[in-house]
Design a protein around this nucleic acid. Structure first.
Lengths: 113, 113
DNA sequence: CGTCATTGCTATGAAAAGTGTAGCGCCCAT
DNA sequence: ATGGGCGCTACACTTTTCATAGCAATGACG
């Protein structure tokens, strides 16, 4: 675990420009990260273990992601793990995506076994 | 490289429900995938090599992602690689995220060296 | 006090995914 | 036929992720 958390304004994995969208895309491309955000959508903070269980992530990975999210200013620890206002904004910005995924589900052939 | 592409309607990595949003979150969590989408935002299709260069991905990884995107019905190959209407919809759904990332960039402390 | 449950989190070893480079076979223009 | 671009594969290596075990701390209960 040695790569650093992507922060806008400086180089990130896969892009040397540091443009905000690049930092964001790098951040989101980390496994389970979006899922964690998603599971944190409720009002009440979650415990480490509850989060691990909800997001179906092993503790090691979860812990790395939590650090990245904290570094990105999207997460705080107070009576468990919860989102910052910025984190909540992100969640809101993700809303169209939820809609899209439903349309997608209808459009993609079941591709059954 | 053996995990299958996430398709809504059946179990994906990190979720056994197959709910659309879970399939989407799994898909997006794959390194470089969102970036590829992003680089494909122009009207003209890109060649494999142009895409590899733009997305800064090695050919092996790129090829895996392309297969996943095709399986998800978001990508087609015709005179290069381009997005399907569904893929374009996704890109549109990603738009708020671009806005968010800019606000984020302003809010996150430069965290300079 | 002991003990029991639950907490956040670290350790470990193995498997999977991603990286960077080289280069193949193909096609087309010269 | 030589040179260039193409899509893509092969290789050997590094990084990431996984699953499980388990530890130190905390708080309740008796």
């Amino acid at each position: 675990m040695k790569s650093v958390a992507p922060i806008p304004g400086r180089p990130v994995r896969g892009s040397s420009t540091g443009r905000p969208i690049m930092a964001a895309l790098d951040l989101f491309g980390r496994r389970g990260l979006l899922r964690i955000l998603w599971e944190l959508r409720g009002e009440a903070p979650l415990t480490f273990r509850a989060l691990a269980s909800a997001a179906e992530l092993p503790p090691g990975t979860l812990n790395v992601r939590l650090k990245e999210l904290k570094a990105a200013g999207l997460l705080v620890t107070e009576a468990g793990y919860g989102l910052t206002p910025m984190g909540r904004d992100l969640l809101a910005a993700l809303e169209p995506l939820v809609l899209w995924s439903e349309a997608w589900a209808k459009a993609v052939p079941p591709a059954d076994a």
